[in-house]
């Protein structure tokens, strides 16, 4: 972090809770700098009390998401060069969740909705049972695999306007999770999960705006998962076939 910088970057950072203000900092602009690098540099060199979250710094843990120039992003994998506007970065906590301090918000409602959507896996076998055979090319398994790699970053939840209009809406991540379970032969409560995902505030509230799919950093498509849930709610859960 020494003399490799090329000019200065202006960063506006949210300070406070729901009530608060933007503070402006200037940090050295560096090659290959991520938004998380910038926040860390502000915290280490100018504002030791600045609160924010991160853990892995490589796009695995999903804890570093923030709103950057009005759009939710995983900050550890977002290069400043790609998102700054006229040399300025504006960084706020994610939308649609209570703000705790500065850039950190309370994810409790987000995770509570995972439970509400029936997102808890119910085992059908114990470790003493033989391994269940799943055909990796079967349609339900392909659907589950396409949606499974969620890192729980809440970027989609923050991007969704329906969540901001309707506090009871389960949101894209929880419904995406429910869709993986509805397609999972090893889940013991597929129909219950489908019922919960279709209950009030569930998949039927989605307006297919597609903000979730546009913003998911790991390129999942919660919007497509939700369409799958809607279809299954009408025509029944996907049929599972045991491999021969």
């Amino acid at each position: 972090m020494n003399s490799d910088h090329v000019g200065l970057l202006t960063v506006r950072v949210w300070r406070g809770r729901e009530e608060g203000r933007f503070e402006t900092y200037r940090v050295p602009a560096r090659a290959n700098q991520t938004v998380l690098d910038v926040v860390t540099e502000v915290q280490r060199s100018q504002e030791p009390a600045l609160a924010y979250r991160f853990a892995c710094r490589v796009g695995v843990c999903g804890s570093c998401a923030m709103t950057v120039n009005d759009r939710p992003r995983w900050t550890c994998r977002t290069h400043v060069a790609r998102v700054r506007e006229e040399g300025i970065l504006t960084i706020e906590p994610l939308r649609n969740m209570p703000r705790i301090k500065d850039l950190a918000c309370d994810l409790t409602p987000f995770f509570e909705k995972w439970q509400k959507a029936g997102g808890r896996h119910v085992a059908t076998a114990s470790r003493r049972d033989p391994l269940q055979k799943i055909d990796p090319r079967s349609k339900p398994r392909l659907a589950a695999s396409a949606a499974i790699e969620c890192i729980n970053c809440a970027v989609c939840y923050s991007a969704c306007d329906v969540v901001s209009w309707n506090a009871g809406y389960l949101g894209p991540a929880a419904l995406n999770r429910a869709w993986t379970l509805v397609n999972d032969a090893r889940h013991g409560a597929r129909h219950e999960t489908l019922d919960r995902a279709f209950a009030d505030g569930g998949c039927a509230s989605c307006h297919s705006q597609g903000n979730c799919t546009r913003h998911c950093p790991v390129e999942l498509s919660p919007s497509e998962s939700i369409a799958g849930l809607k279809r299954s709610a009408l025509f029944g859960a996907p049929k599972l076939r045991e491999p021969a």
Partner: peptide
């Protein structure tokens, strides 16, 4: 279009 994207498979996962 809404009927198509809700009732038929998508051309690709990110293309409603």
């Amino acid at each position: 279009r809404v009927l198509a994207l809700e009732f038929t498979p998508w051309p690709s996962r990110t293309d409603p």
